[in-house]
């Protein structure tokens, strides 16, 4: 059973909304902002694609965001954006499921929670920070805000978070456990993650180019990308269909690329994964990469799905102008440990 993509909700370094991402895919790439973090006695300002959640004002009151941190705000904006884009803000919340993937969860709040008891003692641990640091906080805030009483599921396994979340989202629809699923990925760029990146990789070597597989050029990003999904025939497939998702290990022969498909590679400027993309048997097959539009983050594959969906809608293999013709699209994410996630989409 194919799954229709009814709407997209996107926020990241490129701005907010499908048009903002489309603009970046056309080559009007955003300039990275900065992420400042302490580095020993120094502080570093690293380039990073940061997300602004101000457009949330369109959907919810300021008061309702009182206890909601930046991480969950990005997710909330993605979720509302996808429903709005599909014209389904009034969708039946009793049959709406929420499935969220995140590589690191609410990392800034996780460390804010540690701050609360490191500064003031264990008995001053902040319960608000603790509750918001739990990995399913974003999904919970979405379900609560939308009154969505269908299944609410959060998954976390670094770069494979989104393919894995999608696997369960498709199952929920195929098993008729929900009529619509808000499937999304969210990750934030915080100071500690910036510090860790700096320790592991140093500064980016030269300009950010994810297709230059041999070079460590990744620039961090943050944001949320959500897709509103429904069973074929039960909603308008404004962005085409999701056919299938596969996960497995490259070295065990599980990766089979469908004939006649163009590839959206999940490469994001990390040398360690770049080597794996480099050794793929993809000579002669059209392949593109969109990380320059949103940056390097574990849930990059959610943005790749959105970019593929826009390519299907516009019949144009971004960033170029050529038509897709009768080709399908495949989003392929490879992780340094040899795992892959492959999602196939068609118009």
């Amino acid at each position: 059973m194919r799954i229709a993509i009814e709407g997209l909700g996107l926020v990241g370094g490129f701005g907010f909304g499908a048009d903002a991402l489309r603009n970046a895919l056309k080559g009007n790439l955003p300039s990275p902002g900065t992420l400042r973090f302490p580095y020993g006695d120094d502080s570093i300002e690293a380039p990073a694609f940061m997300a602004d959640t101000a457009p949330l004002d369109q959907f919810v009151t300021k008061r309702s965001l009182r206890r909601i941190d930046h991480f969950s705000r990005m997710a909330l904006l993605g979720a509302y954006g996808a429903l709005d884009d599909a014209g389904r803000l009034d969708s039946d919340p009793a049959r709406l499921a929420v499935v969220v993937g995140s590589g690191y969860g609410a990392s800034a709040t996780t460390f804010a929670f540690l701050d609360s008891f490191i500064q003031d003692g264990d008995s001053c641990s902040s319960p608000t920070h603790f509750s918001n640091s739990v990995h399913n906080a974003a999904a919970a805030h979405i379900s609560i805000s939308l009154k969505a009483t269908g299944p609410s599921l959060s998954v976390s396994q670094f770069e494979m978070s989104v393919p894995s979340a999608l696997l369960c989202a498709l199952q929920m629809l195929r098993e008729n456990r929900a009529d619509r699923v808000l499937l999304g990925g969210v990750d934030e760029a915080c100071a500690v993650l910036g510090y860790c990146r700096q320790r592991f990789f140093g500064a980016p070597q030269g300009p950010f180019d994810p297709l230059d597989f041999g070079r460590q050029s990744a620039v961090a990003g943050e944001g949320a990308a959500f897709l509103l999904l429904s069973r074929e025939g039960q909603g308008e497939a404004r962005y085409g269909y999701l056919n299938d998702v596969q996960m497995g290990r490259i070295d065990q022969g599980g990766l089979r690329l469908p004939e006649k498909s163009a590839l959206v590679l999940g490469a994001d400027g990390h040398q360690g994964c770049g080597r794996l993309y480099q050794s793929l048997p993809i000579q002669g097959r059209a392949h593109v990469c969109h990380a320059q539009a949103y940056g390097s983050l574990p849930v990059g594959p959610a943005f790749d799905l959105a970019a593929a969906a826009l390519s299907l809608k516009d019949d144009r293999l971004y960033p170029g102008t050529e038509s897709l013709g009768d080709r399908s699209l495949c989003c392929l994410k490879l992780a340094e440990d040899g795992n892959f996630g492959l999602v196939s989409l068609s118009g």
């Binding site: 969860g105 990995h135 399913n136 599921l153 959060s154 998954v155 396994q157 670094f158 996960m247």
Partner: peptide
């Protein structure tokens, strides 16, 4: 400690230990 955390995703750690090749998922529903 960070490297250990990155190696320790509970589902991925089991898949790696037994050389398993199927889908792998860590559910974080509290």
């Amino acid at each position: 400690p960070i490297e250990r955390y990155l190696r320790s995703n509970p589902a991925a750690a089991i898949a790696r230990a037994f050389a398993l090749s199927g889908p792998c998922q860590t559910v974080v529903n509290a």
